[in-house]
Design a protein around this nucleic acid. Sequence first.
DNA 1: TCCCATTAGTTGAATGTTCAATTAATGGTA
DNA 2: TACCATTAATTGAACATTCAACTAATGGGA
Lengths: 152, 152
Amino acid sequence: MSDEARWLNDAELETWLAVIGMVTRLPNELDQQLRRDAHMSHFEYGVLAALEHAEDATRRMSDLAYVCHGSLSRLSHVVRRLEEQNLIERFACPDDGRSTLARLTDDGRRRLAKAAPGHVELVRSLIFDELSEEEAKEYGRLTRRILDRITK
Amino acid sequence: MSDEARWLNDAELETWLAVIGMVTRLPNELDQQLRRDAHMSHFEYGVLAALEHAEDATRRMSDLAYVCHGSLSRLSHVVRRLEEQNLIERFACPDDGRSTLARLTDDGRRRLAKAAPGHVELVRSLIFDELSEEEAKEYGRLTRRILDRITK
DNA sequence: TCCCATTAGTTGAATGTTCAATTAATGGTA
DNA sequence: TACCATTAATTGAACATTCAACTAATGGGA
């Protein structure tokens, strides 16, 4: 309270308001497009994509939660729903009895391939059509530094 | 499908993965701090703050929804809960019978003032302690351009 | 004046996420 | 070996958000 110096100045506030808008509106935008065109949320898309890029299209639940930026609980619920649609299958980890492995099925791969073009098109139109190549790189570098702070 | 050129290249993908991490993790981080220290979500904080900065600490519901980046339905539910805690009051708009005005109460102002220092401290530690003054401005400009695209 | 498309807001149900409790396996260490 | 703190994952309840349906007021036209 006695520390006025720690308040945000005008320039900082302007930046901060833009950041709030971005982190609030962008997920909504991605969710809407994917729900409309591919009947999945952006988080679900991220789970499928994270599996596709993994060795054997397989990951431990906790690793998957980390790379998808979600809690293990959230992931567990989401994976159950994806499993019910046969997009993912779960099986015990042979190395560690506590772990569960999740693997992308062929159906899952097809659903992802169907969803990807429209999703990428939206990402491109919102970010990479707006910024020059160098601006986009700089934006990535700055964002990564902040993200590393958040992740600790 | 036939359009390989529209896919993301390595640099774009790196930028995009950082952005996804940011928009997914930052809201969680803000929510956790505010819930722990002030028993409110970041969205609720935003609603109170948006009212405080308004003329007579009063705004139409739909304006409030816009500046808070949420749907009118979401805002309606949130405002009901805040009203139950006497942080906000609602009353009919004299100019337009369809509109509802929301006003910050004295209790609401106090709750916001109590929550603000800890919240600002977190924002500062995540963003403005990481970036130089010029980097923060640049980050704000780039983010704003993307946000304007999202908002159309 | 009388429509009626549009805008503003609310509500309840369906859905999704968080939170806390629980189960179970692991890896040290006494 | 027996203990137990830690890690991994799941589950159900509580809570928040979205979605669709609804009420109601407004502002133009015909």
